[in-house]
C-alpha cells in the first residue's frame, strides 16, 4: 500500500450520466422508505401522513436525474433536483401552498441521516489509508480549507448585506 498509485481513489461514481435510471429510481425508493422511517422516529409523523411529501421529493429526484441524463448541459443532477423543488414551491405556482405544507411534514435532518450511514459503511481501505498516509499536515490544511471556505463566504455576505440595506 506504499505507493501512491495503489491509493488512487475510484471516482467513477462521479459520472452520473452512465447510471441506469430505472435502477436508480428503485434505489431512490429504498432511500425514501428509510427516510420516512427516520422522519417517524425523529418527529412522530407517520408514514401515511408523510406520504404525499415524500412522494413529491421522490418525484423531484427522479425528474432531476432524467434531466441530468438527457439534457446536454453540464449541470449535476442535484442542481436539477433543486430547481424542480424550488419552482413548484414558489408562491403563485399552481398548488405550491399544498406542496409546501406536505414538504414541511418531512424533517430535513432526518433525510441526511441515511446518506451518512451509507457513507460510514462505504469508507474503503484506500480512504482510511489515504487519510493515514497524508498525516497530520493534511488534517490541519483540511480544517483551514473548511474554515476558509465558510468564513470567506460569511464575511463577504455580511458586508454585502450591510452595504445594500
Amino acid at each position: 500500500m506504499a505507493n501512491t498509485e495503489n491509493l488512487t481513489l475510484d471516482i467513477e461514481s462521479v459520472d452520473e450520466r452512465k447510471a441506469n435510471v430505472g435502477e436508480t429510481a428503485l434505489l431512490l425508493l429504498i432511500a425514501c422508505v428509510i427516510g420516512t422511517i427516520a422522519n417517524y422516529v425523529a418527529t412522530g409523523v407517520g408514514a401515511l401522513e408523510a406520504f404525499p411529501g415524500m412522494a413529491i421529493l421522490f418525484a423531484c429526484s427522479v425528474a432531476g436525474l432524467l434531466m441530468a441524463r438527457f439534457v446536454p448541459l453540464a449541470l449535476p443532477s442535484v442542481a436539477w433536483v433543486s430547481l424542480f423543488a424550488i419552482v413548484i414551491t414558489i408562491p403563485g405556482f399552481p398548488g405550491s401552498a399544498w406542496v409546501v405544507e406536505q414538504a414541511t411534514k418531512i424533517n430535513f435532518l432526518s433525510l441526511a441521516t441515511p446518506a451518512l450511514a451509507y457513507g460510514g459503511l462505504a469508507l474503503s481501505a484506500k480512504e482510511f489509508a489515504i487519510a493515514r498516509k497524508s498525516g497530520w499536515k493534511i488534517v490541519i490544511v483540511a480544517i483551514c480549507v473548511m474554515l476558509g471556505t465558510y468564513l470567506g463566504s460569511v464575511v463577504i455576505a455580511d458586508l454585502t448585506l450591510r452595504f445594500f440595506s
Binding site: 429526484s61 436525474l65 433536483v81 423543488a85 424550488i86 406542496v99 462505504a122
Partner: peptide, 18 residues
Amino acid sequence: MITIAITPFVAKFGTTVG
C-alpha cells in the same frame, strides 16, 4: 447509495427555497 440517499434531502432543501 450516498449520492442517491442525499437526493431526496436536496429536494427537501429546494422546497424551503420557494
